[in-house]
């Protein structure tokens, strides 16, 4: 198939950037390619023409590392549900399609180059409290605390987050609440995480606010965009935990 791409090109964080149109480079595209392989092919052709290839993040290319990050025709990771950009395949498109590719857009995710953004803000949120403070060596036997299957499954549902930031990209307010809440829910749900639940919730929400993300107005676009199907109910859990911690924690 032949396609027309409009790709956001931006030299570095300071550059103002703009869209570039590509048509010659996107001819004879196989429907079996993944979306990132399309970009690989375009890049090979650009280099052969002596132009700079399109910079984009990707690593595992099997939908688990959370590195790839691009908004494809107005949707983070593109049109398929529960699918990262690397797992999106060109069967999703047809000959003659026009595709817009943009980076994640958020103040807290500054563009580094073209489609690559800096997601350090997500690390900062985890560093604020997304852990259980147990030193290596002091752990009790793993079966010493029983954890019901329902609880373990609920924690696992939240823990499935791959930290790609699609929730932020999809949110009309560029809010990181789904990401933050998923981590808080994962840890707070498990008995191991309970001793620090209040402090964790306060600290992580605080870090999220400090990073300059927007607020949640319950559009649920985050839930729709999440490649790992994290449910926005975790945000409600976080809201409850935050109120409890704010009102009771000394």
């Amino acid at each position: 198939m032949n396609l027309t791409l409009y790709v956001w090109r931006q030299k570095d964080a300071k550059d103002s950037g703009g869209f570039e149109k590509y048509t010659d480079e996107c001819k004879d595209i196989s429907e079996h390619m993944s979306f990132l392989e399309l970009l690989d092919v375009v890049n090979e052709r650009l280099i052969e023409k002596g132009k700079m290839p399109i910079a984009f993040d990707s690593d595992c290319r099997e939908g688990i590392c959370g590195t790839c990050s691009m908004v494809i025709n107005g949707r983070p990771h593109g049109p398929w549900k529960k699918t990262t950009a690397c797992q999106l395949h060109m069967r999703a498109f047809k000959d003659g399609d026009v595709i817009y590719i943009e980076p994640w857009r958020a103040k807290s995710f500054p563009v580094l180059q073209d489609l690559m953004v800096d997601r350090k803000a997500l690390d900062d949120i985890v560093q604020a409290g997304g852990y259980i403070s147990t030193n290596c060596g002091s752990a009790p036997d793993a079966n010493s605390v029983q954890i019901g299957k329902e609880i373990a499954d609920a924690a696992m549902d939240a823990a499935a987050c791959i930290g790609c930031g699609a929730c932020v990209a999809a949110c009309p307010n560029a809010s990181a609440m789904l990401f933050t809440a998923a981590k808080i829910s994962h840890m707070n749900t498990l008995p191991q995480g309970k001793p620090e639940a209040g402090k964790r919730t306060l600290d992580m929400v605080n870090a999220m606010d400090q990073a300059g993300f927007g607020n949640c107005s319950n559009h649920l676009e985050c839930e729709a965009a999440c490649p790992k199907d994290i449910k926005a109910t975790v945000i409600a859990e976080m809201n409850r935990a935050y109120a409890k911690a704010s009102l009771t924690k000394r």
Partner: peptide, 22 residues
């Protein structure tokens, strides 16, 4: 054996039986 203990303590949500054991 220690790895499983350590990972569990760090909040790794390993699969569990209905009774709550790993």
């Amino acid at each position: 054996r220690n790895i499983i203990d350590q990972a569990t303590a760090m909040g790794v949500p390993f699969a569990r039986e209905y009774g709550g054991t790993l």
